[in-house]
Design a protein around this nucleic acid. Structure first.
Length: 422
RNA sequence: GUGGGCGUAGCUCAGCUGGUAGAGUACUGGAUUGUGGCUCCAGGCGUCGCGGGUUCAAAUCCCGUCGCUCACCCCA
């Protein structure tokens, strides 16, 4: 019986995984330098957590969640995003004591039931960052500047930071009504989708991708013209600070985003080197979410970036030669040498060397083993044949210049370490 | 959920209007009796995605089905 992987998921194989580890290492370094600490929430939660935080009328909740009933009768959902879990953990562990800004990041798989395509999977990985406990625009600007620094260190180019402000609980309701009224005048011209959603989620009409709708959207009232004084000031300060940090950005008044919890600043980073799914990172401020889950008033800013998309857009020269080759390829000839080959390999590894060998039970030719040593770019080939077994001296060949020397088997580790300069 | 493209060797792919498979690469051996990279020679490899139909004959034509992929919706 042949069983394949599930649609929309994939194995990350050796050769590919090195890129992942490199990206993760860079993220850990930079985020740590900005004072963010790692958190690892579970990958499944009570379904209600996601439904209430992301929004009942969003696509994620309406049709994309992996939900099941467990044996105890609980409604469980594989997390479609990370912010909800972090907010839950923040409240559950009372991280607001003592009062200070809590800066967290996480890394791991997310799950959404969608049709896969380039840069979109049913299990996909995100690195997310959440700064909790401050409404200071410096938080917004600092997080976005950190993000761009991260991209720069990875050697990414062709990225664009787009920002917008969605207002707050004070100014959004009025804007929402204004927008609805304006949309109503165009209902006949808008797509079926927009006709449906203008009542429940009118802001989403703004970022409809249908060309004719985009024309109309450009003429609709924009959030940025309907912000209250506080939101206006906040948004302007975010822009000022971004300029101070030397972070390039552009304003996109149609940037709305599909999760309901966003307030004030929202942003996306899009890459020109991806296909239709070009958003590498998205995020923004969510100032009321903690309160909605019965935590204290806690303004927050966060973002999540898609690792598959990030890795797809890495420049090729950055991803070559990741990982190091073996120090020694241990060549063995003849069946009589097999046990000694095993013993020497273990001894050299115990001394810290990276040793590869051949595992054919009926040893293949010396030529073939030398080819493998070469193909794996090994620094040295160490040859053990029947002659060497008798004399107790092995042949060590430097693969770069072809020089060979005989080394007593008792001195192997030390001699190789010396030649490697270790 | 809808639409386009594609499923042939481990990998990348060729195979025209039907005559039951081929190249490159990789692998193994040899030229070089126990020495890699370059070159040359030789060798093995296939349920032609699966099922059915048409036909003397199907990788090729028809129908169905599964899978992959790209795109729409939406998003990381």
């Amino acid at each position: 019986m042949k069983i394949n992987s599930i649609r929309g998921v994939k194995d990350i194989l050796p050769g590919e995984i090195e890129k992942w580890r490199w990206v993760e290492t860079v993220a850990h370094e930079i985020f740590s330098r900005y004072g963010f600490k790692e958190i690892r929430p579970p990958i499944f939660e009570n379904s209600a957590l996601f439904a209430r935080s992301i929004g009942e009328t969003t696509d994620i909740v309406e049709k994309e969640m992996y939900t099941f009933t467990d044996r105890g009768g609980e409604q469980i959902t594989l997390r479609p995003e990370g912010t909800a879990s972090v907010v839950r953990a923040y409240i559950e562990h009372k991280m607001h004591y003592p009062p200070s800004v809590v800066k967290l990041y996480y890394l791991g798989p997310m799950f959404r039931y969608e049709r896969p395509q380039a840069g979109r999977f049913r299990q996909f990985y995100q690195i997310g960052v959440e700064a909790m406990g401050s409404a200071n625009p410096a938080i917004d600007a600092e997080a976005m500047a950190m993000l761009l620094e991260f991209f720069k260190d990875l050697g990414l180019s062709g990225l664009q930071l787009q920002i917008n402000s969605l207002g707050c609980q004070n100014c959004r309701p009025a804007y929402r009504e204004t927008l609805k009224a304006a949309i109503r005048r165009h209902l006949g011209d808008l797509c079926a989708n927009c006709n449906q959603r203008h009542e429940r989620n009118p802001l989403r009409v703004l970022d409809c991708k249908v060309e004719r709708d985009r024309e109309i959207a450009r003429g609709l009232p924009k959030t940025k013209d309907h912000l209250c004084q506080d939101c206006q000031t906040h948004f302007e300060e975010v822009q000022t600070l971004l300029r101070t940090a030397g972070t390039e950005f552009s304003l996109d008044p149609l940037l709305v985003r599909g999760l309901d919890y966003y307030t004030r600043t929202t942003f996306e980073v899009v890459s020109s080197s991806l296909g239709a799914q070009n958003a590498v990172c998205g995020g923004g401020r969510y100032d009321s979410l903690v309160e909605e889950f019965e935590g204290p008033q806690t303004p927050c800013f966060g973002f999540a970036l898609g690792l598959e998309r990030l890795i797809l857009s890495l420049p090729p020269d950055k991803t070559e030669n990741i990982g190091s080759p073996p120090d020694v390829y241990l060549v063995s000839l003849g069946v009589e040498t097999q046990r000694e080959t095993f013993r020497i390999a273990q001894e050299l590894r115990a001394s810290g060397l990276f040793v590869e060998r051949d595992y054919e039970e009926n040893p293949v030719s010396l030529k073939s083993q030398m080819r493998k040593a070469n193909a794996k770019a090994c620094r040295f080939a160490l040859i053990l044949g029947e002659n060497e077994l008798k004399s107790g001296k092995l042949v060590l060949k430097n693969m770069a210049n072809g020089e060979q020397t005989e080394i007593p088997s008792s001195d192997l580790a030390r001699e190789i370490q010396n030649r490697l300069g270790k």
